[in-house]
Design a protein around this nucleic acid. Structure first.
Ligand SMILES: [Mn+2]
Ligand SMILES: [Mn+2]
Ligand SMILES: [Zn+2]
Ligand SMILES: [Zn+2]
Lengths: 133, 133
DNA sequence: TGTTAAATTGTAATGAGTATAAATTGGAAA
DNA sequence: TTTCCAATTTATACTCATTACAATTTAACA
């Protein structure tokens, strides 16, 4: 944990808490969800600090934000490249483990690609099965 | 033009103006950009109407909104499936014409896919060339 | 031409994210 | 250890894209 902090970042309990939360909750939570949940154990926590921590971690490529939801950013521990699926019924955001074979074509066009986001939207497997009772 | 309106939608000058704008400006504009530009020729236009029209057109699959920019929705005439590239330097959003070969895998996992969004971010070709003066 | 449901308009409200400045603190130097 | 200061946290105010609402207007049909 602290090991990650050897990105020249100060080790603060707030940052550790945010990282721990994202590590244990792979649900792509919003900043507000993280804030609300962490606030319970640490009532002095400020929402600004959550935003600041998320920003800092993102700038150091430790986490990433995804824009699959139109109204708010979702946060994700940065692991191997993967895509996301948003269920329009239950709201869950599911990891889709696959590489994108299209990056090459984009690079071939002369653009410098720094980020790749693959978003699918529809009805998730669980909701589909529930429907067929 | 009016032909498209045979989606059971009333033909209003406001809706026609929004459609015409998106047809002539393939720059993935924001709602506010559309509003500001159309307001010049039609000063009585309301911003709410722009939002309403965009919503309605999207619900009828005539246009689509893309979430490549974290702070605001961008709108796009719905043509063949394509991906998008956002230049972090000049802000341009460029069409990347390619299919996504990954949809199948997602469907295979049991999810019902209704939308596919492919977003790349980085530095566009034009900005790269400018850099190398 | 008259009628009415649907669309437009203006205004107020919402809410995610940002700006700011004062108070606190991690961690290096003494 | 103690001191010290730049970095961080906190509380609060603010921005601004989008939505809610209610009154007014209008497209389309008889
Ligand atoms: Mn993920
Ligand atoms: Mn496009
Ligand atoms: Zn679901
Ligand atoms: Zn560019």
């Amino acid at each position: 944990m602290e090991i990650l902090k050897q990105n020249q970042l100060k080790i603060t309990p707030q940052r550790l808490a945010v990282m721990k939360y994202l590590d244990e909750n792979r649900t792509h939570p919003t900043a507000d969800r993280i804030y609300t949940d962490l606030k319970e154990k640490n009532p002095s926590l400020s929402k600004t600090t959550v935003y600041n921590s998320l920003d800092t971690l993102q700038n150091h490529n430790i986490i990433q934000s995804i824009t699959i939801s139109p109204s708010e950013l979702r946060y994700d521990f940065k692991k191997s490249m993967h895509h996301h699926f948003l269920c329009k019924r239950c709201g869950d955001i599911i990891d889709i483990e696959l590489e994108c074979p299209n990056i090459k074509k984009t690079i071939d066009q002369g653009h410098k690609v720094e980020e790749v986001h693959g978003y699918f939207k529809g009805i998730c497997k669980k909701c589909m099965e529930k429907q067929e009772k």
